[in-house]
Computed example of a mutant assay.
Amino acid sequence: MCAAAEKGPPRSRFACRKHAVWSAKPACLDQAGCIHSGDGQPMTEQLAEHCQELLAHFLGRTRTAVAVLDREGTVTGANPALANLAGMPGDSFAGRRLEDIVAPSFREPFLEAIQEACLGARVEIRLSVLSLDGLLRPCALQIWPGEDSLLVLLEEECETDEEQAVTGAETPEAFQRHLSLELYRAARYHRPLAVVKCEVDGVEDLRAQYGDEVTGRLLAMIGWALRKHTRRTDVVARMSYSQFALLLPETDLIGAYVAAEKLSQTVRDVSVETALGHLHPTACFGVVAASDTGESTPQTLLEAADWVLSLARRGGPGGIEAAPSVAYRLAG
């Protein structure tokens, strides 16, 4: 992955600090994750102690996920927080590549960041980790270059826990962030991308007839059903009380329409028991596909999805409509 030139890239080291005081001498990691003096001079006992404390500090932290990579990107060491982040057993990372847990839409930027770090740069980017439970976990990533290894720090950015706990869906803000990144990737690499808006039919009537508790439980079940019946790489968000949005990477208009048909049946299969019997909801779906020319923006794509959803609602409960995003601009 990090093929060096004949003379090899200039060695880069990360400084170590203790109690917020930076050491005057640099240090670097070897392939086994041990820290050495990187300037060819013997490391003093005090500096070695400081460096080992730095590594132990990171490896022992519960919130920051830490991995030591060799220059091919293979994990040679990791702390328990990394396993927790990925939803994997603690000993699962030895000999694996860290990119395996990076969400597919972020793998190319991640690999580019590894390349830059191998050339001596300290890199900071944002990406999402795809855990085994199917959740996309936004993270801030730092890569510190060493002589023979890379030190990778992943800090999870928790902002959707409450909504995900209720419906399994992310917040509108998280959806906007994912949409911006996916639009950029779709335009850069000319890949298909679709957005689906879903609105549960007759929610106000349901609240009047069954009450807020039953209706809230019904919407939560719909959210979990949408999450369960979409791919791990898709994003499901709750945009308002009765409306959900789905982001479908690597999916064109036809594929997204087929997905909406299946999800429409998924919503119908949701059942809530009430005093008046079992309640089976329906929902309308509006499907749009982004332009791969870079003309689509998050705002225009969401507006187009709302417009197509309004067309679906005109056809009655359970309606499904689809259109390319350019159709919205032409209609407007």
Rank of each mutant, 00 (worst) to 15 (best):
P89F: 02
E163Y: 06
C34F: 05
G202E: 11
S242T: 10
A83P: 13
P317G: 07
P89K: 06
E156Y: 11
R122P: 03
S310N: 14
Q115F: 02
S296G: 12
E182K: 03
P145W: 00
I254K: 07
A67Y: 05
D292T: 15
A187P: 11
S149D: 03
L301C: 10
K18E: 13
R71D: 07
V152Q: 02
G168Y: 05
Q52H: 09
S325G: 09
R231A: 04
P317R: 09
P89A: 13
G87W: 01
V152F: 03
S105M: 14
G277Q: 01
A169E: 06
L330V: 13
E157K: 14
P138W: 02
W144E: 05
E199F: 00
D30F: 09
T44S: 15
A83V: 13
P138M: 03
E204I: 07
A259H: 02
L151C: 08
C16A: 14
E182N: 10
V236H: 06
C28S: 14
R268M: 09
A312E: 09
R207G: 04
E162T: 13
C284Q: 12
P89L: 08
S242Q: 14
L179N: 01
R185I: 08
E261P: 00
Y210L: 09
A65Q: 11
I143M: 04
T74W: 00
V66Q: 05
Q31G: 13
V166I: 15
D100C: 08
C28Y: 06
H19V: 02
A305D: 02
A94S: 10
A165G: 14
A117D: 07
E99P: 01
A113K: 06
G332P: 03
R11I: 14
L301A: 11
E173N: 03
V102T: 12
L151V: 10
G134N: 06
E295D: 14
H229N: 09
Y257C: 07
D292K: 10
G77W: 01
I125L: 13
I222F: 07
V102A: 10
Q243K: 14
L247K: 04
V66Y: 01
Q164C: 13
R231V: 01
E273C: 02
I101S: 06
A174G: 14
W224S: 09
G77S: 11
F285C: 04
